[in-house]
Design a protein around this nucleic acid. Structure first.
Lengths: 216, 216
DNA sequence: TTCACGCATGACCACTCGGTCATATCAGAT
DNA sequence: ATCTGATATGACCGAGTGGTCATGCGTGAA
């Protein structure tokens, strides 16, 4: 007798087969977005028959939901790790290390990042709201914890509006990672082809700009 | 005898029909993105026969190219107008007015903005590189002209790295408009439902943050 | 009136999609 | 050796896609 919970059959598969399918699905969704993703291509990539896919998952949405859960798990793990690792550092150093960690994440999990980007502006993607809310929520909460700790330590100019700070950090981080990942958005800095040292230097410049402001 | 240049037949149509088709096409592409856009829906929206569409345009790409040119024209017009209108103001005031103008643009041309967003992360969209390069190029050049003028007037802290400033401005502006347009990205500020006054207030806070920095 | 030509039309085509299902395969229990 | 239930398979289905084309309409020239 088998349990019925979601994806039971899939989870009973040999691990290497599970991984082949998961990788193929993630790749297809990340490359093509939800709607353009083709299940025919997916099964071809995974080296299984189409019918098999429908024994593991109820339908296209179901496959997506699985990928989605997997991606969220990876994101959460990464964020909590970075948060703990830098807990005792100065606020601006933490920002710097966080952004570096973001770049590292992007390189280790390019498919997940690509999926996240694709979903952002594509209405009608199943679970879009939930997925974005989760990712953005985690990111904001991460920044919020940094900011509050910084305020407690007096590392921030008193009286700065917290919401505005969070917004600015979020905007800068997201855009920075986007520029690294998407050449077409990388107009101002040359991030896409840059060496790690150059990227690090840009990060330092940006953080310092945030820190000291633009005013004469 | 008719000239052969692109879209000749289409341009000879009665203006109201041209507009119906253009509106329907823009709406369909903006709502659905390039690939999900359906020509069947498009002709239904426009109230013409499918065959007619293929007398105006060579194919789906051709329709998209037309929309694309139209959108770029509107963007360019808006940017040059704002640039001229604020030429004599202080740098930070110019930033504030520019961001307000961005919000105004977004409200007047939501379809164009939506199209721009959809294209950003969807590879395989025809002319994507060209379109993004054009829009981002115009925006960056706009900011660059503001920054250079500000430097000339001594309104900027000396020694700030120009590329980093441009990046930061670009990131903040883009994200701000995205937050106004896309509820799911509007986690930190409550922009989507905000009144104009509240939006203006947020803009002032953000600019002031940029100006004075975060440091204690 | 006739002709020619630009334009309008929608049935139709080949193709791909997500999804189904009858059938085959295989492992373990009896 | 036989049975059973889980899994594997790919031909097949209806629907929707971008694109085509034979046909018809309308208007100005001859």
């Amino acid at each position: 007798m088998r349990e019925e919970p979601p994806f039971a059959t899939f989870r009973h598969l040999p691990p290497d087969k599970q991984e082949r399918v998961l990788t193929a699905a993630l790749a297809e969704f990340a490359d093509q977005g939800y709607h353009q993703a083709s299940l025919n291509r997916m099964v071809a990539r995974a080296g299984i028959a189409k019918g098999s896919l429908y024994q593991y998952f109820p339908n296209k949405e179901g496959i997506f939901a699985y990928i989605f859960q997997y991606a969220l798990k990876v994101v959460r793990r990464t964020l909590t790790t970075v948060k703990e690792e830098t807990l005792e550092e100065n606020f601006f150093v933490r920002l710097e290390k966080s952004l570096l960690a973001g770049v590292r994440f992007l390189r280790e999990h390019p498919r997940i990042f690509s999926l996240y980007l694709k979903i952002q502006f594509d209405r009608n993607v199943p679970f879009r709201e939930a997925f974005l809310a989760a990712v953005r929520g985690h990111a904001t909460e991460y920044f919020a914890s940094l900011v509050r700790r910084a305020q407690g330590r007096g590392e921030l100019r008193p009286g700065v509006p917290e919401a505005a700070v969070l917004f600015l950090l979020d905007a800068m981080f997201d855009r920075f990672l986007q520029a690294v990942a998407v050449p077409a958005l990388d107009v101002t800095l040359g991030l896409h082809q840059a060496t790690d040292a150059a990227i690090h230097q840009h990060i330092r410049e940006l953080i310092s700009l945030l820190k000291e402001g633009l005013m004469a």
